[in-house]
């Protein structure tokens, strides 16, 4: 396979660890006249945690959303755990069970309890009985520290708790990879820690993760690789220390120094 070489790439990781879970190549995406992704390649190895950073509008969310086909790129290829997401014969709904996604705005179903939020797809997509789904749902809520909130509605939970229910909803399906799009950006500062703690424990359990976020402290502590995007391309990527301390590209340097100020 021909793979575009970068300063540091998932292939290096694969040699030591195992299979590639995410293989996205040559992604192009337009919104009208706006060229949002201009030939993006991203590979993520099993158990790897990749951080994506970059200025607003650089295409981070769009890239992430291409990885579960919430957006469809016009060209390129996306394979998750060996499943070609752009193949018309692929059962997308089946494939999406393996790809968990967590959104900035939580997007919990407000008319359902936390447990029902978690069990809906377990019953409708994974085909579990109500009893099986409830057991799996409660286990997932326990993993995010919310076993005692199963019967609460989203409106009765804090932002941090809601986001943890959203994480439980995704991990209950036992995905092969988790995508996080700014999971802590909508939270009050004092609630960020609880969500990051859950993400850290997920990472320790060996979950493959792609995280769009500017939480530099978390990136330093947990990420294997940081990817810097600007204007629809990956400008630079490397180990967190490399990207944060010694970025080589001027645009990366400018961005890092800018987020440092905050």
């Amino acid at each position: 396979m021909i793979r575009p070489r970068m300063r540091w790439c998932a292939a290096d990781w694969v040699e030591a660890q195992g299979a590639l879970i995410v293989r996205a190549h040559g992604l192009h995406k337009h919104f009208g006249a706006l060229h949002v992704l201009k030939g993006v390649d991203l590979e993520v190895a099993e158990r790897e945690l990749v951080f994506i950073i970059g200025p607003s509008g650089s295409g981070k969310s769009t890239l992430l959303r291409c990885l579960n086909r919430l957006e469809t790129p016009e060209s390129g290829s996306v394979a998750i755990d060996g499943i070609d997401l752009l193949d018309r014969r692929t059962d997308l709904n089946h494939a999406r069970q393996r790809i968990g996604m967590v959104f900035q705005s939580f997007n919990l179903y407000p008319h359902m309890t936390a447990l029902a939020n978690v069990t809906l797809a377990l019953r409708l997509v994974a085909g579990k009985s109500r009893a099986e789904a409830d057991a799996a749902g409660r286990a997932a809520l326990a993993r995010v520290g919310l076993a005692d909130r199963a019967e609460h509605r989203p409106g009765q939970l804090s932002g941090g708790q809601q986001q943890r229910v959203a994480i439980a909803r995704a991990i209950a399906l036992e995905p092969r990879v988790m995508l996080f799009d700014e999971p802590t950006s909508a939270l009050d500062p004092e609630l960020v820690g609880s969500v990051l703690a859950v993400m850290r424990s997920l990472r320790e359990s060996g979950m493959t993760m792609v995280v769009v976020s500017h939480e530099m402290g978390f990136a330093r502590a947990a990420a294997d690789r940081v990817v810097f995007m600007d204007h629809g391309v990956i400008v630079e990527q490397g180990r967190p220390a490399e990207i944060f301390e010694t970025p080589s590209h001027p645009r990366t340097q400018a961005f890092i120094s800018q987020i440092r100020q905050h």
């Binding site: 579960n68 919430l70 709904n93 089946h94 494939a95 999406r96 069970q97 790809i99 968990g100 996604m101 959104f103 705005s105 997007n107 919990l108 179903y109 407000p110 008319h111 809906l120 797809a121 409708l124 997509v125 994974a126 959203a166 909803r169 995704a170 399906l173």
Partner: peptide
């Protein structure tokens, strides 16, 4: 009903009809 409701449901593998009937319509009816 916010677009995020569709996206959340679809991202867990629910189909169009399932999302419409189980997630979106109940909120719309209210």
């Amino acid at each position: 009903v916010p677009k995020g409701q569709w996206e959340a449901a679809r991202s867990t593998g629910l189909g169009f009809g399932q999302t419409l009937m189980r997630v979106v319509l109940p909120q719309a009816l209210r």
